[in-house]
Design a protein around this nucleic acid. Structure first.
Lengths: 337, 337
DNA sequence: TTGTAGGCGTTATCAC
DNA sequence: GTGATAACGCCTACAA
């Protein structure tokens, strides 16, 4: 079955094959009449350009890469979904690569030499890995980062994010509005920039004027895993002066706290309020369901993909997109008693 | 930066470029001495063949597709990981596509025409969708199915699976060995073949001779979601003669049962044993941790990818691989009291 | 605004 | 065994 080529379309439409090429790539300098003839020919012949040929001839690849090393499958899956949506809409395809921890730089270099893409989407935490960024920069591969570390003032690499600081601030303020004063915070890994901003937001809310008296900033460190949340939760709840609320920097740790509470017979939310961050599906899997911050992860990913495609096609794109978060109040938080 | 081509390697090695091509593709009819010279040249030049050119010239694509429509991100993520491992080992890359529910056949057709792969991996439940299979067969695309429906006797399409029937049988037998007699089963969606086999295994264990008296087969139907498990769990536990053990056809539903038990103040495992199937990471996130069946999902996926690559390179491959499952006994099951 | 030659980096076909 | 030479399907000059 000899596949049908651009020549077939040209013959069908009665034009030269270059004209077909122009129409397909949306280039100017083609009369409207011809444009339509070509489109019709494409339609009737059900012609699909051969991506390999396109790529070989030096044009775009119509392939986007998604690099990730995030341990949470749910997070990755949501990102992947968003990216895929945007890709499909633009006729692109998605190539996923999980980066192993050992020398990421070499991996990225190898990937880029092995398979060319029109750009790469970097999800946290790889989006903050200097090795990765360096490898990409060295090859002039364009990339968009999702929820990356704060930029240097003059850095303007494309990114899409939410205001982590404000989200944590607002969640803390919400807990305070329920009457909580002893609110502990379980921070994320030290190298996770967004996690650090969340911690700062919590601190700011705890220290702001007129927020009530008897407040103490109490930060312990976890590593975003369920287990670390459980461990820190047990420690916090085992203390003589236990907090009335625990705010974890992500949902998995918050779930760990809830498990600890259950094990130690501390009722949630009557004796302890628990809040998380991310609104992963698991947040609704526990009982009571988890109060948390929802990042529009899928939208962020889709936005990142659109930016990348825009970049690849030479369009003007806003380089620093910031999307809205929202507080999701569920059963795990309540008035202090 | 003009990329280095096969000609550069040929010049460096002092042979013709066809010879280089032969060596690279592992073809016979090349003297060992030349072979080594070529390899060394490749090494020193750090030459990487251009995949687009390769694909265009009619050879392999070095691309595998992974089609999925499974709602569980964890499941998909594990499959994806296994496939990626195998791909990387063989110099392949992975292209993921989530299939939407509306007319999958057309989607597959479009995907195949848009981007050529050397084969496709089908995870459940798409692996049992006749439309998908038909679309693939029509285009003579080779595929391997993971945990698909049982074959017709004479059907020999490549597949990798575990013995779902036996796994469910053994889990049920294990519950019986703890003294349980009233064991309820929450089945999966009707169109999920592996789920059906699990149900049959449960039935067989319940009805086998000498398994004790007072047993009743009690099957209710869920849809593999946490929520459906919770609903069915509440119904089962609300009944006057409640079961002492509930075995769900997957982990998510089992977790739903545990949530229901907690809500209704039914202690696990003292008043109710709960077992699941899959050993998803969430199984360890609850307390007590979930007793379940572990499918070597990642291994299965890797095996599938290896089979596909073998098929693509014309090797002989075993077409029906069956991998070992294992019972993972944790805290959610205990002796009947 | 449109069409013609040439090349992108491989593999495949045939001679030698 | 090894090596010229022609595809593969498209795009980018350049010319008309």
């Amino acid at each position: 079955v000899a596949s049908i080529t651009i020549y077939d379309v040209a013959r069908e439409a009665g034009v030269s094959m270059k004209t077909v090429s122009r129409v397909l790539n949306g280039e100017p300098h083609v009369r409207q009449a011809l444009r339509e003839r070509v489109h019709k020919a494409v339609e009737t012949l059900n012609y699909k350009p051969n991506p390999s040929a396109r790529a070989l001839a030096g044009a775009r690849t119509y392939l986007l890469g998604l690099y990730y090393n995030n341990p949470s499958p749910e997070y990755v899956s949501q990102i992947q979904y968003g990216v895929m949506q945007a890709c499909r809409k633009a006729g692109y395809h998605l190539m996923v690569e999980e980066l192993r921890t050992e020398n990421v730089g070499a991996q990225v270099a190898d990937l880029q030499e092995t398979v060319r893409t029109d750009g790469v989407i970097l999800s946290p935490p790889v989006c903050d890995d200097p090795e990765v960024l360096a490898a990409l920069d060295a090859r002039r591969v364009s990339y968009v980062r999702i929820a990356p570390a704060p930029d240097q003032p003059n850095d303007c690499r494309p990114r899409v994010s939410i205001d982590d600081w404000r989200a944590a601030y607002e969640m803390t303020a919400y807990l305070q509005s329920l009457g909580h004063r002893r609110i502990a915070f379980i921070a994320g890994p030290a190298d996770h920039a967004a996690a650090a901003r969340r911690c700062d937001g919590y601190r700011a809310a705890m220290q702001r004027e007129g927020a009530g008296s008897g407040e103490e900033v109490a930060v312990v460190r976890g590593d975003f895993s369920f287990r670390s949340g459980q461990e820190q939760g047990e420690i916090l709840l085992g203390a003589t002066r236990r907090p009335t609320a625990i705010f974890a920097a992500n949902d998995d740790m918050a779930l760990g706290v809830m498990a600890a509470a259950q094990k130690l017979q501390v009722a949630v939310p009557s004796a302890l309020s628990v809040a998380g961050f991310d609104d992963t599906p698991s947040a609704q899997v526990v009982w009571p369901q988890l109060t948390t911050v929802r990042q529009p992860i899928t939208d962020m990913a889709a936005t990142a993909a659109e930016m990348l495609i825009g970049l690849a096609t030479g369009q003007e794109v806003e380089l620093d997109r910031q999307l809205d978060f929202s507080l999701v109040v569920r059963g795990s938080t309540g008035f202090v008693t």
